[in-house]
């Protein structure tokens, strides 16, 4: 069927948009304004940078996904600089912080992390509902990407560490952020270790750092381990 031949990024955009719409019920329309604003700004900024580098007008799906994730995690009703700086940090990290032509950090996670450092903001993860829908969408994305090892590696480590608090494993994070393709190791073995490391770093983040999101913290440290894993497991 033609529908199943769409790219993973297209599915991600559709699924994340559907999640945003579903959550209007308990968040109000303010989250749609927030989502449209952040996505629009991320897309424009990304296309300006692409135009400066390649002299081509292009709107990338990855910038749209980063914008959607940032908007869906940020607490609503904040002052406007947060909605500008979070996508700005994300898109700059994507284009500027690179090793071997690949960006190191998950752009959305990087933007949110710096926003948490500079502004007094927590992450509401308001679109991380309903869980059953996230699991259905997430399993489909992982099936399309064929990256089961990431989910298994993360689940195994996080289950061991979080033990009685398994509900702290965030399905939105696991399916839509952990699976970001450009920041993963090249080999299957590398991806298992990478996912496991993120579980460990997230656990340490929860135990040691109170004002930063522990999943985001774990993911960024995990991203840093990728060049080492790629070199080690070549």
């Amino acid at each position: 069927m033609k529908l199943f031949k769409l790219g993973v990024k297209t599915y991600m955009i559709v699924f994340l948009s559907v999640l945003a719409l579903f959550n209007i019920s308990h968040m109000g329309f303010v989250v749609i304004k927030q989502t449209l604003g952040v996505v629009f700004f991320a897309l424009i900024l990304d296309s300006v940078i692409i135009w400066l580098k390649e002299h081509k007008l292009k709107f990338s799906q990855s910038a749209c996904i980063s914008g959607l994730i940032i908007a869906e995690l940020l607490t609503p009703h904040q002052s406007w600089p947060i909605y500008v700086f979070a996508p700005l940090f994300a898109i700059f990290s994507k284009h500027l912080i690179k090793i071997s032509q690949r960006h190191i950090f998950n752009p959305a996670a990087f933007g949110l992390f710096l926003s948490q450092l500079f502004f007094p903001t927590g992450l509401a993860w308001w679109a991380a509902n309903p869980v059953f829908l996230i699991i259905i969408f997430g399993l489909f994305i992982v099936y399309k990407m064929k990256r089961w090892e990431l989910i298994l590696g993360f689940l195994l480590t996080a289950s061991l560490l979080f033990k009685g608090n398994l509900y702290l494993i965030n399905p939105y994070f696991m399916f839509f952020m952990l699976t970001e393709p450009k920041t993963q190791p090249f080999t299957k073995k590398g991806r298992i270790i990478y996912a496991g490391l993120i579980g460990i770093f997230a656990f340490l983040g929860l135990a040691l750092i109170s004002n930063l999101d522990y999943s985001i913290f774990g993911l960024l440290l995990g991203n840093l381990s990728v060049p080492i894993l790629n070199k080690w497991l070549k």
Partner: peptide, 11 residues
């Protein structure tokens, strides 16, 4: 808002 992810009902 709860500003630290605390489980499936966090949002």
């Amino acid at each position: 808002h709860c500003s630290v992810y605390c489980g499936f009902g966090h949002g």
